[in-house]
């Protein structure tokens, strides 16, 4: 079967500071693949490269068999990739509903947008109650719902989720992971980028560990749980 996403020897840098060197990974379609790493390991940079927000210095990115490295962000999103960014990044001066519309910005069919919005509201009834509220005035947990719902709006074939547990209470983190697991079970390929090792590996099928811009470990989620390299990546 064709890989959902393949990164071949990706290197990236900000100015002269190398952030990623020779990163290669593959993602099976319809699975949750995770990328673990401590602060500053290069996770966010990798996502920027994936989304076209930062040009890689070298390497290729294949999404469903086509090289997307070097495309503009809106072209990459147009291929069927979506992202739930770190720190939620909702549009604070827009209503909940407008935020969801922004998620489906490239979807031309209002019919499909309406259907998808109904799905999101079914997943988060709270959002439907507050759909006319400015997203910036909501609580952190509600904003996380907006951000996740917005990421689901375009019905992506690959969903990148960047640090969903950041800044949330443990209860909300568990809720989020439950929802991510459900997204994966529904057949969407998920690339989950996290610091939270235990809960991430619990719902992922395959994982990579990034440390100082390099992949230092890879394997089935079950095996990674007891891997020395994982612990070293965080504490070593």
């Amino acid at each position: 079967m064709r890989q959902a996403l393949t990164l071949n020897h990706i290197s990236a840098a900000y100015g002269k500071a190398d952030v990623l060197s020779d990163v290669s990974l593959t993602m099976e379609p319809g699975r949750i693949t995770c990328l673990l790493g401590a602060n500053g390991a290069g996770k966010s940079t990798l996502i920027k490269v994936l989304l076209g927000l930062l040009k890689p210095r070298a390497g290729e990115i294949f999404f469903e068999g086509e090289n997307i490295a070097g495309l503009q962000p809106h072209e990459i999103i147009g291929r069927g990739i979506a992202c739930i960014p770190e720190g939620r990044r909702i549009f604070p001066k827009m209503t909940v509903e407008e935020n969801l519309y922004m998620g489906a910005y490239q979807e031309p069919s209002t019919e499909r947008i309406r259907k998808k919005m109904a799905e999101v509201y079914a997943l988060f009834p709270r959002l439907q109650e507050r759909r006319a509220q400015l997203a910036g005035t909501m609580s952190g947990g509600e904003q996380a719902m907006v951000s996740i719902g917005r990421g689901l709006m375009p019905s992506p074939r690959l969903l990148i989720i960047d640090e969903p547990s950041l800044g949330l209470s443990p209860v909300l983190v568990s809720d989020n992971f439950r929802i991510i697991r459900r997204i994966g079970e529904a057949g969407t390929s998920v690339f989950l980028v996290e610091q939270n090792v235990r809960q991430t590996l619990a719902i992922s099928s395959y994982g990579y560990v990034l440390s100082q811009g390099r992949i230092v470990a890879r394997g089935n989620a079950r095996d990674l749980r007891d891997d020395e390299a994982v612990r070293e990546a965080y504490f070593g």
């Binding site: 927000l53 503009q72 999103i77 990044r89 549009f91």
Partner: peptide, 12 residues
């Protein structure tokens, strides 16, 4: 409101 987030949503 957030240029980068807008790009992530697919805005040109």
């Amino acid at each position: 409101q957030d240029a980068e987030a807008a790009q992530i949503m697919g805005v040109d």
